Computed example of a mutant assay.
Amino acid sequence: MDTLNRLLGIELPIIQAPMAGVQGHALATAVSNAGGLGSLPCAMLSVDTLRAELQAIRAATDRPYNVNFFCHTPPQPDAAREATWRAALASYYAELQLDPGDVPAGTGRAPFSAELAEVLEAFHPPVVSFHFGLPSPDLLARVKRWGARVLSSATTVEEAQWLEANGADAVIAQGLEAGGHRGMFLSDDLTGQMGTFALLPQVVAAVRVPVIAAGGIADAQGVRAALALGAAGVQVGTAYLCCPEATTSALHRAALQSDSARHTAVTNLFTGRPARGIVNRVMRELGPMSAAPPAFPLATAAVAPLRAQAERLGSTDFTPLWSGQNASGCQDMPAAQLTRALAGGAG
Rank of each mutant, 00 (worst) to 15 (best):
T3V: 01
T3R: 01
R6I: 00
G9F: 00
P13S: 03
I14F: 08
I14M: 09
I15K: 02
I15T: 04
A17V: 02
M19D: 04
M19W: 00
A20H: 00
G21H: 01
A26K: 09
A28E: 02
A30H: 06
N33E: 14
L37K: 03
L40S: 06
C42V: 10
C42L: 09
M44S: 13
V47W: 10
D48R: 12
L50N: 11
L50Q: 11
R51G: 04
R51Q: 13
A52E: 13
A56F: 04
I57S: 10
R58G: 11
T61W: 07
C71A: 09
C71V: 11
H72I: 10
T73R: 13
P74K: 07
P74A: 08
P74I: 09
A79W: 03
W85D: 02
W85V: 05
W85T: 03
S91G: 00
S91H: 04
Y93A: 00
L96K: 02
V103T: 06
G106N: 01
F112S: 08
V119F: 11
A122Q: 13
H124L: 08
G133E: 10
L134W: 08
S152V: 02
T155N: 12
E158F: 04
E159N: 02
A165S: 12
A165C: 05
A165E: 11
D169E: 04
I172V: 15
A173P: 08
Q174T: 03
G175C: 06
E177P: 12
G180E: 05
G180C: 06
R182F: 08
G183S: 06
M184F: 12
M184V: 09
D189M: 10
D189Q: 13
L190D: 14
T191V: 15
G195P: 13
T196A: 10
T196H: 07
L200D: 07
P201L: 05
V204N: 06
V204D: 03
R208V: 03
G215T: 06
R224E: 15
A225F: 08
G233R: 04
V234E: 09
G237H: 12
T238D: 07
L241H: 14
P244V: 12
T248K: 06
R253I: 11
R253G: 09
A254Y: 06
L256A: 08
S258A: 15
H263S: 13
N268S: 09
T271I: 04
G272N: 11
I278G: 03
R281V: 03
G287D: 06
M289V: 14
A295G: 10
A301K: 03
A302N: 02
V303H: 03
P305F: 01
P305V: 02
P305D: 00
L306M: 01
A308F: 01
A308W: 00
Q309T: 00
A310T: 00
E311V: 02
E311N: 12
E311M: 11
L313A: 07
D317H: 04
T319F: 05
L321D: 01
Q325H: 07
N326T: 08
N326C: 07
S328K: 14
Q331A: 15
Q331K: 15
P334S: 14
P334I: 14
A335D: 13
L338E: 14
L338Q: 14
A346E: 11
G347L: 15
